[in-house]
Amino acid sequence: MTQASPLQHDCPALGQGRAIRLAEGARPEITFYIDGTAAVAQAGDTVLTAILMSRRAVRHAEFGPEERAGFCLMGACQDCWIWTEEGHRLRACSTPIRAGMRLCLAPPDLWPAGMKANLP
């Protein structure tokens, strides 16, 4: 539905996600979607963890060229807000991942054009 996310670069060194599991790696797997592409998480992951297993970041900064991957993980900095395909927003660090979730790392098409115009 959304065009390929710029967060999905294919630089070989960056092919892996940011997060790595050090413990608790044997929970049931669930499938969800990042910008229309299927991805795998484990039950109990936050949305932020789930995305960072295969990505380096979760969104673009609105006011700079850089990407963002969360900052505080405790719901205080608001760095990690992303979108669902239906246009809802959610705070990735404090939202548990659920099977079948369809997430967008940029505002989905139904967002007002003005909100998207400022994005790099």
Partner: peptide
């Protein structure tokens, strides 16, 4: 401001509550 900079608390939460390193 770049992706991959976290607060120390964040890195601890990631480890404690999610079992991951960032």
């Amino acid at each position: 401001q770049q992706a991959g900079v976290y607060s120390l608390g964040a890195a601890q939460i990631a480890l404690k509550a999610q079992g991951v390193s960032l």
